[in-house]
Amino acid sequence: MDDGKKYLAELLGTFVLVLIGTGSAVVAGTYIGFLGIALAFGLSVLVMVYAIGPISGCHINPAITIAMLAGGKISAKDAAVYIVVQCVGAVLASIVLLSIMTGHPGYNLATNGLGQNGYGAASPANYSMMSGFIAEVILTFIFLLVIFGATSSKAPVGFAGIPIGLSLAIIHMVGIPITGTSVNPARSLGPALVVGGTALAQLWLFIVAPIIGALIAALVWKYLLEDPATPA
């Protein structure tokens, strides 16, 4: 596949995930609740796996790209560009969401935000920084473990998007009250850069914790679960 097409696919895929996911919270959260938001994130990934998976692999998440790099499934060059374009797509999505929300007379960026992640007073249910860190590591670990398994050579061909999307949805069902659920540094970066303030100050956790969880999953899969005779 042409490199430019792969990179554009990753940008567009991340744009869709962040716009629909955070948009479901900001635009429709009072109507659909946490369950609806969780499904919006999960279904966004599911449909994008089939839309751009054949082009780029549909990482749309720097933590996934880093885990795939650690597992030897992507080159360093592609990984670096993937991460950059994923972040660009996420920021563009947050800018577009803000432009939509400014058309609502009751919307205030400082009060309503853009679906940013947070801990402590910025957590939806006031969970501590430590709780948020542990949750983000473990939830990302679970997500990546599903991805490695669903895309392995022994998994049914053509069905990877379903378990991957559903796993992201169930992760959000648990994680939304804790941090708003990141498990994706780009998804956290977009809203944080546009909102600023506390969201930007707390962004470090939503970069570090998902990467740690993803790397643990890559190691567990490679050395404990993967059959070396039939690599993923």
Results as ranks from 00 to 15, higher is better:
152 S>L: 08
95 I>L: 15
133 F>W: 06
167 S>H: 01
91 V>Y: 05
135 A>E: 08
161 G>M: 02
99 S>R: 13
146 V>R: 01
155 A>W: 05
125 A>R: 11
104 H>I: 12
164 I>L: 07
158 G>S: 12
142 I>S: 05
124 P>F: 10
109 L>T: 05
129 M>S: 06
122 A>W: 00
106 G>C: 11
132 G>N: 11
153 S>N: 12
130 M>D: 05
156 P>Y: 03
122 A>N: 01
139 L>W: 09
107 Y>V: 11
152 S>M: 09
113 G>F: 13
144 L>G: 04
115 G>H: 07
94 S>N: 03
165 G>S: 06
132 G>P: 01
118 G>I: 02
135 A>P: 02
106 G>A: 10
112 N>Q: 11
160 A>R: 13
135 A>D: 12
106 G>L: 05
150 A>H: 11
157 V>Q: 15
109 L>P: 09
132 G>M: 03
138 I>H: 11
128 S>I: 08
152 S>T: 09
102 T>Q: 14
123 S>V: 07
120 G>D: 03
166 L>N: 02
128 S>G: 06
163 P>Y: 14
112 N>F: 04
135 A>R: 02
122 A>L: 11
146 V>D: 03
150 A>Y: 07
131 S>F: 01
131 S>E: 15
98 L>F: 13
109 L>C: 04
94 S>G: 08
104 H>Y: 14
134 I>W: 04
95 I>P: 10
133 F>H: 05
103 G>F: 13
151 T>R: 13
129 M>Q: 10
124 P>L: 11
94 S>D: 04
168 L>R: 02
159 F>M: 15
103 G>S: 12
165 G>L: 10
124 P>S: 03
138 I>M: 14
103 G>M: 12
153 S>C: 00
150 A>R: 14
164 I>M: 05
160 A>L: 13
119 Y>F: 15
157 V>A: 15
156 P>T: 01
132 G>Y: 03
160 A>G: 13
130 M>L: 15
98 L>H: 14
140 T>W: 03
128 S>N: 07
115 G>A: 08
126 N>E: 14
150 A>K: 14
123 S>K: 05
150 A>D: 09
92 L>N: 09
152 S>K: 13
165 G>V: 03
128 S>R: 04
96 V>L: 15
114 L>I: 09
136 E>V: 07
136 E>F: 07
166 L>W: 05
158 G>K: 12
108 N>V: 10
102 T>W: 06
148 F>S: 02
104 H>P: 00
99 S>K: 15
98 L>T: 06
156 P>M: 02
111 T>S: 12
108 N>I: 08
131 S>L: 01
126 N>S: 14
103 G>C: 08
140 T>V: 03
157 V>F: 05
120 G>T: 07
113 G>R: 08
149 G>Y: 03
110 A>E: 14
94 S>W: 05
115 G>N: 09
157 V>D: 11
96 V>M: 07
144 L>C: 04
163 P>H: 12
117 N>K: 09
130 M>T: 15
107 Y>W: 10
109 L>M: 08
159 F>Q: 13
168 L>K: 03
150 A>N: 13
96 V>Y: 00
160 A>K: 10
123 S>W: 07
134 I>M: 04
114 L>P: 06
91 V>Q: 02
151 T>P: 06
93 A>K: 09
91 V>W: 05
158 G>C: 08
91 V>K: 02
108 N>H: 12
140 T>R: 02
118 G>T: 00
134 I>R: 00
110 A>S: 14
113 G>W: 07
95 I>R: 07
